[in-house]
């Protein structure tokens, strides 16, 4: 099925090709690569490094899905999308899944006909301000100039928050995070607002991160997660349970270091055995190999490892687990059981 799109267009036949309305899962298998929509660049979540390799927390999810389906974590075609293009890209089938810190909202789920397959990061919108501004709370921001990245739920939350608190503000809309950074650092706006994780990632890229403070208020709930098209439940299940496998693996102590051992033979924990395919046939039910979860986890490790490697406290971004800790540790991550 590997053919040049250009020749396809030349022959016109190519335009009418692919009429077989197979499920996304079959498409991906046939194509041999997973098309995964990501941001155009947000350090820690999804950004190309100096060599053009995509790296980050959202990227890790894409790679895990690719590994689960195709057995190869590098068989991913990353499609950078903006706030404007992401939904069309997904709806039109240009991408198979979208892992672009997208907030799960009612209208996106119901009206735009997408299926959120879970939450990989519990976020909330916050503000970052220079320490020199002397602001310690978002309640003091009346009259401030606020930079916002357009095309997100952020600007709606912002309008609601300032309206609810009877404050006025001046929005400065910005297309990309890079420009937001530029404007904010130049002082063209007093504060910059986006998801708190994004703020941390942005601050990490500053020359003097310690000169800037993230204000304590969280003005919205932003559950971020991967999403797929509505109506293709098989594919939705694959993405959902790959994410759950990453989360469950952390809960059960399965890491990229010990997974080879644990998967080689059934251990004494039945739940782990079922997850790793040494017992039962969960993989088959998904339409995948029995060791799908092993491959998914081996690529970048379990949820905790992905988190620590890309955005955790030891990275420049330095996010603490907070809400994103396992439920056993007081967080909200809670994978349904594998049985």
């Amino acid at each position: 099925m590997k053919k040049s799109v250009f020749l396809g267009a030349l022959t016109v036949a190519g335009i009418a090709a692919g009429a077989a309305a197979a499920g996304t899962l079959d498409d991906v298998k046939a194509r041999g690569t997973l098309n995964c929509g990501v941001t155009t660049g947000l350090v820690g979540f999804a950004a190309p490094d100096a060599n053009g390799e995509w790296d980050g927390f959202d990227v890790g999810v894409c790679r895990a899905v690719a590994a689960a389906v195709l057995g190869d974590g590098s068989a991913v075609e990353f499609v950078p999308t903006t706030g404007k293009t992401r939904f069309t890209a997904l709806a039109s089938g240009e991408i198979d899944m979208l892992a672009r810190n997208t907030t799960w909202t009612f209208s996106r789920d119901v009206d735009l006909k997408f299926e959120f397959t879970g939450i990989n990061y519990y976020d909330g919108q916050g503000f970052i301000a220079p320490k020199a501004l002397g602001v310690s709370s978002a309640k003091e921001l009346s009259g401030a100039t606020v930079c916002i990245q357009t095309g997100t739920t952020t600007e709606l939350n912002l309008a609601d928050y300032f309206r609810a608190n009877n404050m006025d503000y001046e929005p400065v809309p910005i297309e990309t995070n890079a420009e937001g950074q530029q404007q904010y650092l130049a002082g063209a706006c007093d504060v910059y607002t986006t998801d708190r994780s994004g703020l941390a990632a942005t601050r990490a890229a500053f020359e003097n991160p310690s000169d800037h403070v993230i204000l304590p208020e969280t003005i919205s709930k932003e559950p971020l997660g991967p999403l797929v098209r509505h109506g293709d439940n098989e594919w939705g299940d694959v993405v959902r349970w790959t994410l759950n496998a990453l989360i469950a693996a952390e809960e059960y102590g399965v890491t990229s270091a010990n997974i080879a051992d644990m998967a080689s033979a059934p251990g004494d924990k039945p739940e782990v055995n079922r997850l790793l395919g040494t017992e039962g046939n969960l993989g088959e039910m998904l339409g995948l190999e029995s060791d799908w979860a092993v491959k998914a986890i081996s690529v970048g490790g379990n949820y905790g490892e992905l988190f620590e490697k890309n955005i955790g406290e030891n990275t420049p971004i330095g996010l603490s687990r907070g809400l994103n800790a396992q439920w056993t540790e007081g967080g909200l991550l809670y994978s349904p059981p594998f049985r």
Binding site: E155, L156, A159, D160, F162, Y169, E170, P171, V172
Partner: peptide
């Protein structure tokens, strides 16, 4: 005709 929900500077 629905509320836009965003502000314009």
């Amino acid at each position: 005709s629905e509320p836009s929900g965003y502000d314009i500077n």
